[in-house]
Every structure is written in structure tokens, then in C-alpha cells.
Write a protein that binds this DNA or RNA. Structure first.
Lengths: 233, 233
DNA sequence: TTTTGTTTGTGTAATATTTACATAATATAA
DNA sequence: TTATATTATGTAAATATTACACAAACAAAA
């Protein structure tokens, strides 16, 4: 066996399938949602699972995750991050499969539901008790990841419609973090960060005094060298 | 093909080898160090690489990382975290190999060097220009991970001897973060955190006024529900 | 034994950030 | 017109962060 280029070496390695699983978060009805699909394994009949797929022979894992996302939601330019690999040897009943979990945040309004079929459904994260495979664990890990992420980076905007009120923004933070936030301090925080553009429009069809609508200042965020100061209430 | 338990399904998946690579950080001589081994591939002759190994058929990836660590340093109870998977299809010249990077922090004094052979060496992180495979990229990712980690959690103690002076602790932070810190503010921060136990001993053999020696208050850290307030200078 | 060089140990004032908290205004629904 | 719900807004207190200087301890050299 030659180590000249490692080919012979690699040929002897044990091999196993790798998948990616996407935890696709959305926000609707003041709740954090996750997009799930019915498991196609008899063992998990009726149970819900994350959206995943096998990683192809010459495919980067990031690319595989984007592919899953595109296949399921038709969306391409969305937030996506690698979170963690899960490797329990018997996590898949069909044999050993290592999976790499990705988190994506998407605006439920934006994606024209290919998702009318009842195999795919937005679930309220807080109401999920059981999932196929080890997907509950993966979901929990990704939820914790998101809680941390949203406090350190302005990624929450990816979950909201283009126009949103401060109340909606606060609801988003409260839903993800599972805490109540002080409204005046919350608004002050965002006001000083200069990341919101006042659209000079108001909410409509609300049964109370309507709030102003804002959009996220992407320009500002991308150009600014100024660090996101974080949400820490 | 039955989906009864997914066996047939999994059997058709493309398979690939998985490795773990450990970025083993140490601290010595006021520099952040990383433990590297000479590459055994001809293509990378003379170049240095991370300490890695294949993941066995039924082995958890975490277990594989601990195994690598134990094999190379003889240490078992040390800090280790999964950082990220790297998957560029041609990252290994022998064929497709996905690797999962782990970070470990270890006290160089503690491990009785099995490492006298010249295939294994502690390198100053800042002086490394080139590495085998994509290991430079992995190292950089892990260094950034460590920079973030050490500001959010008191993990730095894993890199220091049992007894250390505040100056050594500060040197550690400065070396990892690549910044200069204000001495009085640094000391004040740690004083208020109550994580250091004054050993009532002094440094010896220093050519200047000796400093007090401290040890890390593990009790305090483990029991306390109080959050680590972070280092943010 | 004195002097020099180096590093330790310590406190305060100025600034910035975080927290807690209440009232008037605007819309819809009844 | 009134009741209900929610928006918009500011201030004072507490806490955290930053910038900064001098005396004391030891070793080494004179």
C-alpha cells in the first residue's frame, strides 16, 4: 500500500452515509414554528421529522443543506448555518447514518407554499413533544443555538415579513427566548441601533391603535463596521 | 425495497469516510500553542497536520475525538467541544473524506510527554503559515471559536497550570484574543467574579516583584447558578 | 549597601449601559 | 359615546465599563 497520495489509505477507511437535516424556523401567529415532514419510515409512522437528505458523493454539506431548503421551500437566498453533527450509532433504524444539522430562518410569507400537501407542516416549536429519529434532540439543540444567535446577531429579521411593527419584532424575541421583555427598553435598544427604517406607514386591520411599520436596514447592517451590540435584557 | 425499517433505504446511500480532527490548544511561554503531527502523506511531506483519526463503524464522533486525544496525550478528563464539519470534496487527496473538527484545551504541564518523538510538536499558533490538507482553515475556525468561547465561559483555566498568577491569566487572554488588556480592569473583573482562590503563595524565581498565586474555583463555578458575566474589555 | 529596573497591587472619576416604571394618545368594537 | 386594547414616549437609579498613576516588592547590578 502506498501513501503516495493517500488513495490506498482512504480506500480502507470504514465508510458511512452522511445526511443533512434542516431545522427550518419560521414565525407566525406570534409563535416560533418549524417546518416538518411526515417520516417515511414505518417505524416512525405518523411521526414528524426534520427536512433532510443524503449528502451526495461529491457534494459539500452546505450545498446539500441549501438543496434541501430549495427543494422544500423553493427559496434560495436565505439564512442558513451549520449547527452540529449528530452521530449516535443507532440514531437511524436503517443503519449507521451521521447527520449534520443546519438551521435556517425563513419568512413564512415569502415562500409560496409548495407545501399544500399534508406531508409538510409548520409546527409550533413549543407544542412538539415527540419526533422521529433523534430529531427532537436536534431541534432542541438548534433552538438553543437560535436563542444564542438572535441575542448576538440581528438575524431575527429573516423570520419577519418585510414590513413589521415593533410589537411584532418584540413578539419574535419573546417567542424565541421564552421571556417577557420590557417594551420601552426593547424599543429604546432598537432605536439606538439604527437598524430600523420607519416606513411612515401604519398597521391596518388591528382592533386597537395601530403601530408604525418598519423595515430592516440591510444597508446599514452590511456596511457598518459597528458591531451589533446584542440583545441582553 | 421495503421502508419497513429503512435498512434497504440506507443501504443505497452513498457512503464516505468520516474523520475527526482535534485542535489541541495549549499555552506556554506566553503563547497560544497547538499540538501538531507531521503529515504521513507524501503529498504533504514535511508539513504539519492536526491530530485526527477515522471514525470507526459504530463509534460516536465525540468518542472518536476523545480517543484521539487520549492516544496522543494520554489525557482523558479534558475540555473538548465539537466545532464544525469540513466537507470540501477534494480536501483529502486520497478521496472524499468529511472531517469534524474538535477543540480541546489542555494544560501542557499536565501531560507527561509521550511526545518526545519529533513527529509531534507544540507550535505557536501565530507562527503557523501552512498546513497539510485544509487544516489551516480548520485551525483558524477553531481559533475564532476559542476567542469567542473564552469571552463567554471560563474555559481558559484549562490551559493554565493549577497555580497561576493574575499576570499569567491576563497573558493567556491577551494571547488568545490578540489584544492588550488593561491590567487594573482585568483584575477587577476577575475579583468580582469570585472564581479565583488566593493560594497565599507567591511566584518564585521571577526577576521582579513576585505575584500572588491563585487557583481556579471549580466548586464555585460548578455550583453557582450565577452566570459567568463574560470578558468584554 | 545602594541604586536601578521591572513588575505587582491598588482606587477613583467619567461615561455608558441597563433596568424599572406610568401616562396620554389612537384606533376599533360595542 | 363609551369601553377596551394597544401604541408611543422619558427619566431616575443602579450597574458596568473605561481610562488612568503611583507606591511597594523583589532581583540584579553597581
Amino acid at each position: 500500500m502506498s501513501l503516495k497520495n493517500g488513495v490506498a489509505l482512504v480506500a480502507q477507511y470504514p465508510k458511512m452515509p452522511i445526511t443533512v437535516d434542516c431545522v427550518i424556523f419560521g414565525f407566525d401567529d406570534n409563535e416560533l414554528k418549524v417546518l416538518l415532514i411526515r417520516s417515511d419510515l414505518e417505524k416512525y409512522q405518523g411521526m414528524w421529522s426534520l427536512l433532510g437528505d443524503i449528502v451526495n458523493e461529491s457534494e459539500e454539506i452546505d450545498a446539500a443543506a441549501y438543496r434541501v431548503l430549495d427543494q422544500r421551500t423553493g427559496m434560495t437566498d436565505i439564512y442558513l448555518d451549520q449547527v452540529k453533527a449528530f452521530s449516535r450509532p443507532n440514531r437511524h433504524p436503517g443503519g449507521r447514518v451521521i447527520t449534520i444539522a443546519y438551521c435556517s430562518l425563513l419568512n413564512i410569507q415569502h415562500h409560496s407554499l409548495k407545501i399544500t400537501d399534508n406531508e409538510l407542516h409548520w409546527h409550533s416549536v413549543s407544542s412538539i413533544t415527540e419526533m422521529a429519529f433523534d430529531h427532537k434532540e436536534i431541534l432542541e439543540t438548534c433552538h438553543e443555538w437560535l436563542q444564542k444567535m438572535i441575542q448576538e446577531n440581528p438575524v431575527g429579521f429573516n423570520l419577519l415579513p418585510d414590513k413589521f411593527s415593533l410589537r411584532e419584532l418584540q413578539n419574535l424575541y419573546e417567542a424565541i427566548l421564552g421571556v417577557d421583555l420590557d417594551r420601552r427598553n426593547f424599543r429604546k435598544k432598537f432605536a439606538t441601533m439604527d437598524l430600523l427604517i420607519d416606513l411612515e406607514e401604519m398597521e391596518e386591520d388591528v382592533p386597537h391603535r395601530p403601530g408604525k411599520l418598519y423595515k430592516f436596514n440591510f444597508e446599514k447592517y452590511n456596511k457598518s463596521s459597528r458591531k451589533w451590540v446584542g440583545i441582553d435584557f
